[in-house]
Design a protein around this nucleic acid. Structure first.
Lengths: 132, 132
DNA sequence: TCGCGGGTTGACGTTAACGTCAAGGTCAGG
DNA sequence: CCTGACCTTGACGTTAACGTCAACCCGCGA
């Protein structure tokens, strides 16, 4: 018998909010800001895989310190890219280049910071050794 | 004659703000929040190298999306560590471990994102090739 | 001496990203 | 039929991190 754990295919606000670790208010807010447009079953929101993936993207952007406006611009371009209009694609490609450059800069920044932190930790341990 | 560009040793608010790419208001705000305590020449603020380094730390923290409160906690511990009290050092060491772990997690996140971005860019270029 | 380019302290305004009610619809279980 | 757990749309409150403005002082080059 198919005792298979049928993998989820749609979600309600509450379910998805729980899974993503945010509140339902947040999801509704994002919708009001035009970041997502889930389907409706009557009046209730119904999120599918695309919505879910998109939200993951949005939250990742947030972790990187982007504003919702910036995020909206980017995810909007992803959509526009599907239209496969030459001009659109070129713009997107340009923007992707900028983003990649920014990410690489962050990697440098992160690496430097991590080095500093571990160095401070080392000095800290040294001092502790000299105490007891 | 010593036409050496005497390296700066102190700064006024305006000078330091310019160098760091923030406004004087920001520096005053950080002081009000207890993040820095520059010396005074009469009533005017005078920043030295330590203040400058500290501000760089603060701004880096901001780039990583930390709140000023979190940053205050950390830089505060750096100060407390100078006291070389065993307990203080152990607490700091602990916290540094957490921070390092967080930074490494961010590195993973960043790497994944960068990979995705470059992949999208590649697909984008492919599509462009198939158009003309 | 005058005005200009700095500096100072309040005090109030602003923006983003939600939190927090209030007031109500819907549907399954007991 | 009623309760409880969800969902809905407003509308207003909140917090962080400054921006902005007013009113003031201070030194200095013309």
């Amino acid at each position: 018998m198919t005792s298979q754990a049928e993998p989820r295919t749609t979600w309600s606000v509450g379910e998805l909010a729980d899974e993503l670790g945010v509140t339902t208010r947040t999801l509704r807010f994002y919708e009001a800001e035009g970041l997502i447009t889930p389907a409706r079953s009557g009046t209730a929101r119904v999120y599918d895989h695309r919505d879910r993936a998109r939200l993951r993207l949005i939250l990742r952007g947030k972790r990187f310190g982007m504003s919702l406006a910036e995020i909206a611009e980017i995810v909007g371009m992803y959509d526009g890219a599907a239209s496969s209009e030459r001009k659109q694609l070129e713009i997107l490609l340009d923007r992707l280049g900028e983003i990649a450059a920014d990410l690489r800069a962050r990697q440098q920044d992160l690496a430097r910071t991590l080095a500093e932190v571990t160095e401070v930790a080392t000095r800290c341990r040294d001092r502790l050794q000299q105490l007891p």
